[in-house]
């Protein structure tokens, strides 16, 4: 696989990051070195092995569908600077 400017820009766009020219030229050799080294896990035989998404066995936790205590509208908006009439105000969608 080729790791080049184009790939990094594509990934950055997916991750909603604007990278500067300087950042791209700094990251490119570093990411190459890292991914090349990490690719060695390819050599591990994992045939028939299930992936672990947690280190311990966990079970689904269910609860009754009842109304509980939650944040008030005022509390939920306490940390934002962008609000209007009791709602979050976001950037333009279209």
């Amino acid at each position: 696989m080729k790791i080049d400017n184009e790939l990094i820009l594509n990934v950055a766009k997916n991750a909603r990051l604007n990278l500067t020219e300087d950042e791209i030229s700094e990251f490119l050799p570093q990411l190459k070195e890292i991914l090349e080294s990490f690719s060695k896990i390819d050599k591990v035989n994992t045939k028939g092995i299930d992936p672990s998404f947690q280190p311990i066995e966990i079970k689904n936790v269910y609860r009754d569908d009842e109304i509980g205590k939650c944040l008030s509208q005022e509390e939920a908006l306490k940390n934002t600077q962008h609000k209007k009439e009791g709602y979050f105000k976001g950037p333009k969608v279209i």
Binding site: I41, D42, V44, T46, I49, D50, P51, S52
Partner: peptide
């Protein structure tokens, strides 16, 4: 090749 493989290596 990366994420899922790593999760299997984690099991081992």
């Amino acid at each position: 090749a990366y994420y899922l493989k790593a999760a299997k290596v984690r099991t081992l």
